[in-house]
Design a protein around this nucleic acid. Structure first.
Lengths: 203, 203
DNA sequence: TAACACATAGTACATCTGTACTATTTGATG
DNA sequence: CATCAAATAGTACAGATGTACTATGTGTTA
């Protein structure tokens, strides 16, 4: 059994290694604190049975690095570790092909059971997060690609003219998009929009 | 030796407990996942030799709860545990009387040494964070109380008129403050100001 | 007391913002 | 092919925003 553990918190890795020893016949645990190191380890290895990946990593976050992991080691199930019970990321993670999502707040007993489940080919997502995603999809906020692009620029404090220049379109067009974004986000000005974008994780 | 460990990540607590056993003659480790539970534990106990406190906790963050801890158990040194190497919080933490600041990314060996140092009455702050605070204090941004108040309202997307109504002053006065804030933050509009406020930790 | 920082408030003006319209083009879907 | 969603762009207008001034009252400090 080969497990790769990617988390920038050394102490958390220590704790998790103890747990992993209880999961089954662990032969080898590789560990590192960043995606770049992890890529290197995978290239030098011959496939892992499980990859545990923190969503919040310096430089490249786990979420950003997921695709690369899937390409480097397509057979290894990838499980996300998350410090915050982030309702938004989970759906994206599962869509991208993650086999599980484990908040670090979970007790070790539950983590052990979850990992056993995943190693047998199952998926694990904690109940409260599933409820969260359920609520989210009901009141889901969906912006078009252009709207998301413009919302990002708004959040950086760019004016309509600047956005128009950056995107190479007329500022009247930018206004139409901006108005549409405000209606969707149910806000009245760009600063509220930036605030909402942060809260909803749209940036 | 009595140690109180407050962190909402059960697994991290497990890892840290292992380390704490290496620090010295540990008699008792109490642990919990929130400030409220921690207050209860302290009330039912007779003083701790050390309190380890996560800065990011649900409901009441460690930073917010610090004062309460100091009142409930004035003799116990408080050490912050932080998931992110947050350059901004550390200064505030030390000002509030924390005896140390330990990023979770630190290796267990260094954590052990740091805790020993603190138990002997010293303070510990990792080098790279000290550098960070040094940089921060050089280019330090200081706003008046009123300016900070208004910056907060700007960050919430409030319009000048709304701010004026909330604070019970004329909107012309609000504009003067807003202009002053922009000059200090070196920005050109309220959304940039909100963005800057977030980045600089002024909210 | 004089000087200073801060908050307060006003006028004036150019510019930006946000909304309400209409209208065209393009790509996807039934 | 007809329809629809999305992006584009224009006009028009009310209101908000940001800046440049002046000016007053209130504490604090040298």
């Amino acid at each position: 059994m080969k497990i790769l553990l990617v988390d920038d918190h050394a102490l958390f890795r220590d704790g998790l290694k103890l747990i992993l020893k209880q999961v089954g016949e662990v032969v080898e645990i590789s560990e590192c604190g960043s995606c770049d190191e992890a890529y290197q380890i995978i290239r030098e290895s011959e496939g892992f049975n499980l990859i545990l990946l923190d969503v919040n990593l310096p430089n490249i976050s786990g979420m950003e690095g997921l695709q690369e992991f899937r390409e480097l080691d397509p057979s290894a199930p990838i499980v996300f570790l998350s410090g915050s019970d982030d309702h938004r990321l989970i759906k994206k993670a599962l869509e991208l092909g993650a086999m599980g999502y484990i908040p670090k707040t979970l007790s070790s007993e539950i983590i052990i059971q979850a990992l056993r489940l995943i190693l047998k080919g199952g998926r694990y997502v904690p109940d409260n997060i599933l409820q969260g995603t359920g609520e989210l999809s009901r009141s889901e906020i969906s912006l078009t690609a252009r709207q998301t692009e413009i919302l990002n620029l708004i959040s950086q404090g760019k004016a309509n003219k600047e956005i128009a220049a950056i995107l190479g379109i007329a500022d009247n067009t930018v206004r139409v998009h901006v108005s549409a974004i405000f209606q969707i986000l149910k806000v009245n000005n760009r600063t509220e929009a930036a605030f909402a974008a942060l809260q909803e994780g749209l940036v």
